[in-house]
């Protein structure tokens, strides 16, 4: 085996133009006879710009593929037809598991569609008819018929869905949840 010279760069070739061996990290000085400096600088900037564009596109693709989707239209119907108005007695709570909400008829006869997700950390809140309130099994929050907090740790009233009454039929749109601090009579839909 012939002994190779120590690994590393080739010894500098004395005939090569000065500066050719230097690492290129910025716009290099134009060698004799090369393109004029303005063109070189322009190409350098153009490459940088393109690289920046590529990075931005990449970030966009990643962010976009992670963007949360709307509630699955395929698995849950967005508009839930609850039924005729007089199916629901005043001061009653009816569960709609597919729509993830309770249809509440208030003592006065108005309607509220209350989300079943606890505002504390998101557990599903069952209605307890003996206690006449929603009681969260996870950490003990409780809400009254209107969804107002009667026992912490939940910080705000249960979320709402939009209720519409057409031809005495109650319909609930589950596409968007509406957050609220507390119950307000304006939230009630009347037949």
């Amino acid at each position: 085996m012939t002994r190779r010279p120590k690994r590393g760069r080739k010894p500098p070739d004395p005939s090569a133009p000065a500066g050719a061996d230097r690492a290129r990290t910025g716009p290099p000085d134009p060698p004799e006879g090369g393109p004029p400096p303005s063109r070189r600088a322009f190409l350098w900037k153009a490459w940088l710009g393109l690289a920046g564009l590529a990075v931005i596109e990449l970030i966009w693709v990643v962010v976009d593929s992670l963007r949360p989707r709307r509630r699955d239209v395929a698995t849950a119907d967005v508009v839930v037809v609850a039924g005729p108005v007089d199916h629901f007695a005043p001061a009653s709570v009816t569960a709609f598991p597919a729509g993830r909400f309770y249809l509440v008829r208030t003592e006065e006869g108005g309607f509220l569609a209350v989300s079943r997700a606890c505002t504390h950390l998101g557990c599903t809140v069952p209605w307890s008819s003996e206690e006449y309130r929603f009681v969260c099994p996870c950490h003990g929050s409780a809400f009254d018929l209107h969804g107002d907090v009667v026992n912490p740790p939940a910080p705000r009233a249960l979320d709402l869905f939009e209720v519409r009454i057409e031809n005495h039929i109650v319909k609930v749109n589950t596409a968007n949840v509406r957050r609220r601090r507390a119950f307000d009579p304006q939230q009630v839909t009347w037949a």
């Binding site: 992670l66 963007r67 949360p68 989707r69 709307r70 509630r71 699955d72 698995t75 993830r100």
Partner: peptide, 13 residues
């Protein structure tokens, strides 16, 4: 929360 869950609830996404 929506990004982590891929939507409003824990599901397919």
């Amino acid at each position: 929360q929506q990004v982590a869950r891929g939507g409003p609830d824990i599901g397919r996404a």
